[in-house]
Design a protein around this nucleic acid. Structure first.
Length: 571
RNA sequence: GGGCCUGUAGCUCAGUUGGUUAGAGCAGAGCGCUCAUAACGCUUUGGUCGCAGGUUCGAGUCCUGCCGGGCCUACCA
């Protein structure tokens, strides 16, 4: 069996994420993980919270809590919501873990040994009132170009001109508003990515099957202007991983921490180690996923992320891995996504616009969200969430096509034959035709899943569901029952067999409904089908079942309108 | 400014290395069924494939220009 290592981009700690974040990484990675497990492949599915950096410190301060406490609480909240969405991580780690401290410092040491770290002395803005250095975007002032009075230190939002913080007129702290700012000289470490440019370029060139979104962003960074630039990997902050060279102090770097974008991807590895720790396993258990010299040579490593994360996963993290000169596992496939917009605009945390993960679960079960989001996942371009589309998609696909199919056949059987599978005769031409059609569609479905074409997979799955309704309509057991109960029984037996079959195929998308279907048919543990004809003969005459409750209640127009109003935002 | 992505039926999207009459789902229309969550099935109306040129026996597909939408541009993560 194949071994698949899957990581989802790690969500930032400073708040609850919205549906756009969910659909851009965690949800599709979960589908892929579940699919591979269903096939019998060995899967390690890793996610974590990304906990370091200025925004975390500020969010904690705003909440009036020590940053470590704040992060611990938010991690628990995010972990709970992840469970609510049935995200099947083998481990949901924390980038602030001791494992990540050790590993990040280890990588920095190895990179230094390889001559890929250089010290750079630079000028940074320090705010006396805030007692901290300010990242460019946390400095506000008047734009020298257009006069906009709330321009940020990195760019003026009004005229889009790119700025340096020292360009701003009357600069002030965006945190406190203080104008008591000074420029200080400070020393930082830079990762010499530029030295690895040709190697990275050749590596990206070899990935001909990657999404164009992934490779084009990587290429842009590799070749734009002077090419790939070295990148600062340390910051003057309190909250983070202390800068060390392996286990040793790093002279001149006292009091500094690594930049979040340096330690965040390393957390993929560290989280796998956390997984081993949590289960009481020794290091060999996680190393066989990450060290090609310790069993990871046959691992296929797939990363999922939104397009904003692509540069770090195609260039920075691979620089860390390659530059270490140690046999760490490099990514084999990077699946990247565009953005999901909300009802004609962007999701906005600050404006309270759009649906956040905790709110979504308060409104409707996770399967509803999973199905709609996954069948509209922004693979080729940005896509848009509207309540109308959500209502239509969910009602039609889940309630009418799938849910009602289960309902109509189980209730019909109960009424005519009781709650057990009727005997009838052998399957005939009608059943064989369905088997043939579904066999073709199943192959297509599996192909799309292997290729991580989520939308196409969802469409194929839906077509497989619809085949059940088409069959029933043509076979019309309610008619044949009057003259030929034996024929009706055959039809019903076949149709009932479609339920556990559908459950298994649907599980990656809608795990709760799949479990309900299997439980109703007393078929828990049904395996992924290798042969459709065999699979559709699993339930035998006399096997008992129960009629499940309505699996998907429809979203009414009133409910839709209410939700639309509730989440329209404050502005 | 530069780069990348994108523009196909009312809506959401497929369209493989250019190859006959451009497809699917939803919505709309008609018919059928009555087991079922007024669900299901069948049939069907919608497109000068953003615009204008060009290459070719042949262009949704390749080239050039223009127009619209989006993203990125390296100290938010």
């Amino acid at each position: 069996m194949a071994r698949i290592l899957i990581t989802s981009a790690i969500p930032y700690i400073n708040g609850i994420k919205h549906l756009g974040n969910l659909v851009g990484s965690q949800l599709p990675s979960d589908v892929y993980a579940r699919f591979n497990r269903a096939l019998g492949n060995e899967v390690m599915f890793i996610c974590a919270t990304d906990e370091h950096g200025t925004p975390a410190e500020l969010a904690a301060a705003k909440a009036g809590k020590p940053v470590a406490d704040f992060c611990a609480e938010m991690h628990a909240v995010q972990a709970d919501i992840a469970k609510g969405f049935r995200l099947s991580f083998d481990h949901f780690g924390r980038s602030s873990s001791q494992r990540n401290h050790t590993l990040t410092q280890h990588f920095a040491g190895k990179l230094a040994e390889a001559g890929l770290i250089r010290e750079v002395s630079e000028k940074q803005v320090y705010s006396n009132a805030d007692g901290r250095y300010l990242p460019d975007r946390y400095i506000e002032g008047t734009c020298p170009n257009c006069g906009y009075d709330a321009a940020r230190g990195d760019q003026c939002e009004n005229c889009t001109k790119q700025l340096d913080p020292t360009d701003l007129l009357e600069p002030r702290s965006a945190i406190s508003g203080s104008t008591d700012l000074e420029v200080r000289e400070t020393k930082h470490l830079y990762l010499c990515q530029s030295q690895l440019r040709d190697k990275l370029d050749a590596w990206i060139d070899s990935k001909t099957d990657w999404p164009i979104l992934t490779t084009s962003i990587a290429k842009k960074w590799l070749h734009d202007g002077d090419g790939l630039q070295d990148r600062g990997i340390t910051r003057d902050l309190d909250w983070g991983i202390p800068v060390k060279k392996g286990a040793e102090e790093w002279p001149g770097m006292e009091g500094k921490v690594f930049y979040v974008w340096f330690d965040a991807p390393i957390e993929y590895i560290a989280a796998t180690a956390e997984w081993a720790d949590a289960h009481g396993y020794d290091d060999s258990k996680w190393e066989r996923w990450w060290r090609t010299d310790k069993g990871a040579a046959d691992v296929k490593y797939v990363q999922f992320m939104g397009k904003d994360n692509v540069p770090f996963h195609t260039l920075s993290f691979p620089s860390t891995i390659m530059g270490s000169n140690e046999p760490w596992k490099l990514v084999d496939f990077i699946k990247s996504f565009n953005y999901l917009n909300y009802d004609g605009g962007q999701f906005s945390t600050s404006k309270g616009r759009g649906v956040f993960m905790n709110e979504a679960l308060e409104i409707l079960p996770s399967d509803y969200w999973r199905w709609w989001l996954l069948s509209h996942v922004p693979e080729s371009s940005d896509s848009e969430f509207t309540w109308d589309s959500f209502q239509q998609g969910v009602n039609k696909d889940l309630a009418d096509v799938l849910g009602n199919f289960v309902s109509r056949i189980t209730k019909f059987c109960r009424a005519k034959f009781g709650e057990e599978v009727p005997a009838g005769g052998d399957y005939g031409a009608a059943e064989q035709a369905v088997i043939n059609e579904i066999s073709t569609r199943l192959a297509a479905y599996e192909g799309h899943m292997q290729a991580i074409e989520i939308r196409k997979a969802a469409a194929e799955l839906r077509a497989i569901w619809a085949a059940g309704n088409e069959y029933l309509q043509a076979a019309a057991p309610w008619t044949t029952f009057k003259t030929d109960p034996e024929a009706a029984a055959t039809t019903v037996r076949f149709a009932l067999n479609l339920i556990p079959f559908y459950a298994v195929l649907s599980e990656p998308f809608i795990p709760d409904a799949a479990a309900t279907m299997l439980a109703a048919m007393n078929a828990t543990g049904t395996a992924w089908p290798t042969d459709v004809a065999t699979a559709l003969g699993t339930l035998k005459a006399g096997d008992s079942f129960t009629v499940p409750d309505v699996m998907f209640a429809k979203i009414t127009d009133d409910a839709r309108d209410e939700m639309q109003a509730r989440f329209a935002g404050r502005s």
